[in-house]
Design a protein around this nucleic acid. Sequence first.
DNA 1: AACTTTCGTTGATCTATGTCAATTTATATG
DNA 2: CATATAAATTGACATAGATCAACGAAAGTT
Lengths: 219, 219
Amino acid sequence: MCQVLDYAEPGSGVPSGILLRRQSVMKGEMLFGVEQPFKAVYAVKSGSFKAVIADLNQQERVVGFYLPGDLIGVEGMANRHYSYSVRALEAGSVCVLDIGRLAESGRSTEAIQRALIDMLGREVALNHSQTASLIRQNADQRLAAFILALALRTSLRGLGGDRLYLGMSRSDMASYLGLARETVSRVLTRFQKEGLIRLRNQSLMLLSWEGLQQVAASR
Amino acid sequence: MCQVLDYAEPGSGVPSGILLRRQSVMKGEMLFGVEQPFKAVYAVKSGSFKAVIADLNQQERVVGFYLPGDLIGVEGMANRHYSYSVRALEAGSVCVLDIGRLAESGRSTEAIQRALIDMLGREVALNHSQTASLIRQNADQRLAAFILALALRTSLRGLGGDRLYLGMSRSDMASYLGLARETVSRVLTRFQKEGLIRLRNQSLMLLSWEGLQQVAASR
DNA sequence: AACTTTCGTTGATCTATGTCAATTTATATG
DNA sequence: CATATAAATTGACATAGATCAACGAAAGTT
């Protein structure tokens, strides 16, 4: 999850026969719910989204974030239903790739399948390394790595990588990183005091890419 | 990872053109190394295996275990290279599905691709839930869930699910669960005192399936 | 069998981070 | 704009689990 994925513009590489349509979403709107039957894959055009699941105690747990350029719901295609819910963090828009029926009928083309395999494979590989790192890293490392990953993703999209907008709340970050929201708050303010970042509300400015990398690597 | 997967016996569903061969492995032997080019998928016939990656500090980190019936290396197919190393925990044997060249040439059949997509999709979905749970659970919950998962997997394979053999060391478990090996030791001995399990060396006997489930759910 | 090395257990500390609580700041609503 | 609600910050405190250390038990090696 949370992976940088290129997606096809209408006409560029996506096999014909797939319904492509634009859709606007409001803040807080749900793209799809967990266990819902798979209908479509979504390419984020603008805004940001979070993927959540409910844990054993019905607590909402954030399992990923999506930024412009990311594909949402890919793994639903394999399972026939989505394995988490996705909610918009702010107003935005997505491009709906309506390939549900195609996949169900088994008539998907080679090209789609190959693309799917690639995407899923990358996600599996990424997940392994993420799980492995999250579980053993302390709060500083997790947050530094998180910020760097966000910055990298937005910079890959062309937007200046130094200034980035966190659509998500501290609670969402905390949930995703497996920390208490108070801890997230404390670490971020400390990072600011140490001159690593500048933070006001939802806008984060990267002051020391290198410093953050050092923190992420060892502390 | 660590997932229960059915795999094809020669002739049953696996498209022709795939090389199938049996291979024995010694304890500690490496099936393949991380970054090595993808050559084959392995179906575990007997024995057990661990998947490891090296973290930033060159520390070995266990990211999964494989039991008889599991498929190893699937996600390597998508990436052209394996994303972790796999090592045998004990003597055993695997069935080698030599589909590397097929995948490279792009001539893979629909059937293989569909199977791959299914497997990868399940792995992605599983990984999300595992990551989410591991990160927020305490040592007791992690170990109870781990034991239950192991028992479930072995029982699905027909072997009596109550007695199970842990091929891996406490350190391997600890690494996989994100704990110190001392903590694993302490929790396991406590579980034993509480009558949940009986443990001697590598053999574990499940005394209270229900009790473990309670621990896994909340404590 | 004697030796060496690895693995597991147990105890004593220490520390990172969770929890509880109070306050401030932001966001939404009438 | 005023008020209500939610989010973020900050402090004080509690605790799960890491770390350090010592010892005992397996298991591999000569």
